[in-house]
Amino acid sequence: MTMLLKEWKINKLLHLMVLPSLIYVLIYKYGPIAGIVIAFKKYYPVKGIWHSPWIGWDNFQYVLLLSDTPRVVANTLVIACWKIVCGLIAPILTALLLNEVRKSLFRRTFQTLVYFPHFLSWIILSGILIELLSPNAGIVNHVLGWLGIKPIFFLGDNRWFKFTLVASDVWKEFGFGTIVYLAALTNINPSLYEAAEVDGANRWRQTWHITLPGMIPIVVLLATLSLGNVLNAGFDQVFNLYSPAVYESGDIIDTFVYRLGLQQYQYGVATAVGLFKSGVSLVLISISYYAAYRFANYRIF
């Protein structure tokens, strides 16, 4: 206890700086956890949470019997997994290509351009994509028309909607990942390249035997940590881009919960779905952190 008081006196200003963030987390992150009891009740807003009748596991059973549930879960897993895979491959390839560029001005300009979409919200980007991908006036379909390809309804065709979601997400986020991998490349000892060049290795051989092995630790770390996002297919993106025409291919757990809770007023059912997702996500995040510790020696403390 004495040590804690001494530590507090030494770093009291730092603790005071953290205090607003702590209050925010307690109120807006931990406070709403009490509301999960709605998942086990027939919730009536006029009665409130505590006076609504208990119904046990009925909400969960109702969700499992819904015909839309398997499709929604499948869409979430497919979209999230493709985003994880493509979100790893694209920045790795971009970082490798940029690592070979010797013109610093070109490198900095390209990095700025690909990093910029990361700072834009999906509300802004969805408006841009809707205009670009319009089957009638969009520039993408105009280009396809010049190539002799019929217009494609990217945001209204179930055959193309998943692809559009994954491609646009990669376009938005791969610039941030590229910077992470470029930072990892700076830790590779330059003498390794010099020794390889003396031994007659060309640029491809140097990349294969030096650059890629040097990136493996950060690749393994980011890949394992991304396991916790298997059930997060991107609510902001999907919500701003989808429509009833593509529910079959684009409806995910988060948008399903939104419609159940805020449009159909089935608060207990929506809470049950959200609680189930949170439980599975907790397990996946725990596994991912253990894997990151096991294979990449990553620690959160």
Rank of each mutant, 00 (worst) to 15 (best):
L4E: 14
W8E: 12
W8T: 09
I10K: 15
I23F: 14
Y28V: 02
Y28T: 05
Y30T: 02
F40A: 11
Y44I: 08
I49N: 05
Q61L: 12
V63A: 12
S67Q: 08
D68E: 10
V73F: 08
V85K: 07
C86K: 02
I89Y: 08
I92E: 01
L93S: 07
L96R: 01
E100Q: 14
V101W: 15
V101L: 14
K103S: 15
L105Y: 14
L105V: 09
R107S: 13
T112Q: 08
F116T: 08
H118T: 09
L120T: 11
I124A: 09
S126C: 07
I128C: 06
I128T: 09
A137E: 15
H142E: 13
L144N: 06
G145Q: 14
G145W: 12
W146Y: 11
W146K: 00
I149W: 13
P151V: 07
G156S: 11
F161V: 03
F161E: 02
K162V: 09
V166I: 15
A167V: 13
K172S: 03
I179C: 04
I179H: 02
V180T: 08
A184G: 02
L185G: 02
L185F: 02
N202L: 06
W208P: 00
H209L: 12
I210W: 06
V219M: 10
S226R: 06
N229S: 14
N232Y: 07
N232A: 08
N240I: 02
V246G: 04
Y247V: 02
T255S: 08
Q263T: 10
Y265C: 00
Y265H: 08
L275Q: 07
L275K: 04
I287F: 13
Y289E: 15
